[in-house]
């Protein structure tokens, strides 16, 4: 409950305050958004499975974003940043699809 309320508060704050983002972190934004989506779908599925745990949810959310950004950062340093981004997007995309399929089975029994 705390996690969900906190997320909503954060989203509203982000929409209202509109802080500016430093240019240096701009390359990591798409990956961060994909990682956040993955964590959200994972959390929703865990909720439906009855396994939801706020601490696990938040930690997985945070680590997803940080690790995804780190991978892209490393890729940038090695000159393969775009390939790394693609890899992260593929893996997280597959996870999002699988979790979405599980959520669909829960909700529609189909």
């Amino acid at each position: 409950m705390i996690a969900v309320v906190g997320l909503i508060v954060g989203v509203v704050a982000g929409l209202l305050l509109q802080p500016s983002v430093p240019a240096a972190v701009a390359p990591y934004l798409p990956i961060a958004v994909i990682a956040a989506l993955d964590a959200l779908f994972g959390g929703l599925r865990a909720k439906l499975d009855g396994l939801f745990d706020e601490k696990v949810f938040i930690v997985s959310f945070l680590s997803n974003v940080v690790v995804a950004a780190l991978i892209v950062f490393l890729g940038d340093q090695l000159g393969v940043g775009s390939q790394m981004s693609t890899g992260v997007v593929v893996v997280l995309g597959i996870r999002i699809f699988s979790n979405a399929a599980a959520i669909r089975r829960h909700l529609f029994k189909a």
Partner: peptide, 20 residues
Amino acid sequence: WVGLLAVLLGAVTVVAAREL
């Protein structure tokens, strides 16, 4: 801690999406 991190993550995500 969980609450604070949740606020932070929500804000970061929505700011990133807006920026994009």
